[in-house]
C-alpha cells in the first residue's frame, strides 16, 4: 500500500509534466488518500501542493487556493518555513488570478517576511515584484513605487538583469 502511494504520486507528477492535468488530479487524489491512511503528513502536504498546481492549469483557481491553504497548514504543522513561504507565494499568485488583490497582498507579505527571515534574497525580490503589481492593480501608487524600488535594489544585488 505504501508503494502504491508513492507510485500514484509519481504517476500524478508524470501526467502533470505531460500536461494531462485531469489525470494528474486523479492520481494525486489517490496519493492523498493513501497518505492519510498512513498518517504521513509530509506526503499529504506534497499531494495538496501538487493538486493545487494542477488546478491552476485547469483554470480552477478557487479549488487551487483551497489546496494551497491545506499545504500551508501542513507546512506550519511540520515547521517547514521554506515550504510555508512557497505556499504563501502560491496563494498570493492564485488570489491575483482571482483578482482579489487584498488577499494577494496579505499572502505576498507573509511570503516576504519569511523570505527575509531565511535570508532568501531571490524570494524577497519576487515578493516585492508581486506586491508592486498588486498595489498597482489597486491604484496604491505610493506603495507600488516602494516595492518597485525594493525589487530594483534586490535585482541589482542578485544580478537579475531581466
Amino acid at each position: 500500500r505504501a508503494a502504491q502511494g508513492r507510485t500514484y504520486g509519481n504517476l500524478g507528477n508524470t501526467h502533470y509534466l505531460l500536461g494531462n492535468f485531469r489525470c494528474a488530479v486523479a492520481s494525486h487524489e489517490q496519493r492523498l488518500l493513501i497518505a492519510k491512511e498512513f498518517g504521513d503528513r509530509s506526503a499529504e502536504r506534497r499531494a495538496y501542493c501538487n493538486l493545487g498546481n494542477a488546478y491552476i492549469f485547469l483554470g480552477e483557481f478557487e479549488v487551487a487556493s483551497e489546496h494551497y491553504k491545506r499545504t500551508l497548514q501542513l507546512a506550519r504543522q511540520l515547521k517547514d518555513r521554506a515550504v510555508e513561504a512557497q505556499a504563501c507565494y502560491s496563494l498570493g499568485n492564485t488570489y491575483t488570478l482571482l483578482q482579489d488583490y487584498e488577499r494577494a497582498i496579505d499572502y505576498h507579505l507573509k511570503h516576504l517576511i519569511i523570505a527575509q527571515d531565511l535570508n532568501d534574497r531571490i524570494g524577497e525580490g519576487r515578493a516585492c515584484w508581486s506586491l508592486g503589481n498588486a498595489h498597482t492593480a489597486l491604484g496604491n501608487h505610493d506603495q507600488a513605487m516602494h516595492f518597485a524600488e525594493k525589487h530594483l535594489e534586490i535585482s541589482k544585488e542578485t544580478g537579475d538583469r531581466s
Binding site: 501538487n50 499568485n93 491575483t96
Partner: peptide, 26 residues
C-alpha cells in the same frame, strides 16, 4: 482589471512558467 488582464500580470506569468515544470517529488 479583467480576468485576461490578471493573467497578463508579469510576476504571475513568470510564476506559472516556473510552476509548469515543478512537481513535489516522492
Amino acid at each position: 482589471m479583467s480576468r485576461v488582464k490578471a493573467l497578463q500580470v508579469d510576476s504571475v506569468q513568470r510564476w506559472m512558467e516556473d510552476l509548469r515544470h515543478m512537481t513535489e517529488v516522492e
